[in-house]
Design a protein around this nucleic acid. Structure first.
Lengths: 147, 147
DNA sequence: TTAAATAGTTTGGTTTATCAACTATTATGT
DNA sequence: ACATAATAGTTGATAAACCAAACTATTTAA
């Protein structure tokens, strides 16, 4: 039995946030089910990736970038460390800070996740021409910068 | 003190889901802080809106559309009723179902929320020309349909 | 007319996010 | 220089959300 009655979006459909959430919701659910065996908590993938591209980043900088509270983040980093994917090191210039680094094992794992993510998005991306895709990215970036 | 060190997105920046989440995250946080005084639980606004545009919808149909579990949803509807914003009515054709309706008061409240949401999005939308906005919506809809 | 399915509810267990308070360290103002 | 404020990270309490299971009432199917 398929969707028989289409739901009317009404004024909700006028808002761009609604459309963003709809698409992002489906993408993240697909990614979650494709990586269920890894038991990834939310924010773990993006954290690991951002540590990789910003070696030595602090927990606060990272939590701001990912959009999670810094206290939630302690457990994310705990888990990355426990799994041997990343490690904390005391910063030498500011001993309050923990400089974060991805381990070799973490980088290998990360590359697997990139492939899964690329596969997850491929269906959606096939709908867009290259120029449409780059325009979409540019529009989203413009919106992000001003918020 | 402003952002001094720009974060490097690395391979994460290749993925469209990352950009979608970033923007949507900021939008929903802005909306949440603009409506903090109303003490809205998550899903309440979109539920009320979808009941309004689909009068008589059932709880199961609604929970699927909003993306929340049906058991979580019981409390959302409880709260809508307690606040006098919506009401349950026994369906006459199927007495298992609750047909949901927005009250007059609920519609007034909903209109306020629409305005707040429009204001929340206005900063982001000012960045886009009308044609860019309609293209953005079209691209997002194309992605949504295929997922 | 049994048996199975559906809509809604309740309960219990698990996970996650958020907030305030706390320690340690660094930065600032006079 | 010294008192005060700000920052980074952590902890613990609290509040939501999810999930699964069990249950009632009702409808559909065999």
């Amino acid at each position: 039995m398929v969707n028989q009655k289409e739901i009317e979006m009404g004024r909700l459909g006028e808002f761009i946030g609604f459309r963003l959430r709809r698409v992002q919701n489906l993408l993240s659910k697909d990614f979650a089910s494709a990586t269920r065996k890894y038991n990834l908590r939310s924010g773990l993938f993006s954290s690991l990736s951002l540590i990789s591209s910003n070696p030595g980043i602090s927990q606060n900088e990272l939590s701001a970038a990912v959009g999670l509270d810094k206290s939630t983040f302690v457990q994310v980093i705990d888990e990355l460390e426990k799994r041997g994917l990343a490690k904390r090191e005391k910063s030498k210039t500011d001993r309050r800070r923990h400089a974060l680094f991805v381990t070799d094992e973490g980088q290998i794992f990360l590359n697997e996740l990139y492939e899964i993510m690329a596969k997850t998005e491929s269906a959606a991306l096939k709908q867009l021409s290259p120029s449409e895709l780059s325009l979409l990215k540019a529009l989203l970036d413009r919106m992000y910068e001003v918020l």
